[in-house]
Amino acid sequence: MEWDWALTWEILPELARAFRVTVAATIIGFSMALVGGLVLTILRRSPFRIISWPANFIVEFVRSTPLLVQLYFFYFVFPVEIPDMGGIFTSAFITGVLALALHYSSYTSEVYRAGIDAVPKGQWEAAAALNMSGGRTWTSVILPQAIPPILPALGNYLIAMFKDTPLLYAITVVELLTTAYQIGSARFQYVEAFTIVGVLFLIVSLMSAWLIRRMERWTALPSH
């Protein structure tokens, strides 16, 4: 078994193009997960059990079941409803991103919850004493204190989602792994393509992990 450098250089541009799809799925999916998780968290804190209980159940259920099954479910349940917009935004891509977003909303929801629980009770009481509305309390008192400390944890889930994007292969989105698989099976030379994909993931993950460690330093609140 010998490493084929000629093949490596030949397939790199193709893999790089596919990498853009992977990155796009991650960024769009995670942006949606950031919003979705926040919505779920606020619903879970509702004083009405008819709202908080289903929200809690959704988070538990989604977190405990495989992303792959959720992808299939989305992919087969609304297949035709989403128009094919061409380019990278195929209907499969959109379905996949929606499933990723839902799955990771359940994770980000837990992170938000931890951040909000860490805000001292006195802050809620102070906001109430100042007669702030509920919305104002959230946007100008609670979230500005809750979010900076949890940025590293959110960052870790961003990396985790990035590493889960290859699952889009299962619903025919042409991202990095799908491309590698196509290259591999067309020439029956899997070693180079799959190894390059692994190395790409490794590089991006290690770099992001390093960035998050730096971020942990500047998001640590000044000590009182």
Binding site: P166, F194, G198, F201, S205
Partner: peptide, 13 residues
């Protein structure tokens, strides 16, 4: 640092 599915494909293929 790498994806579980990529690891699986690597081991299998």
């Amino acid at each position: 640092g790498t994806s579980a599915l990529v690891q699986l494909f690597w081991f299998y293929f």
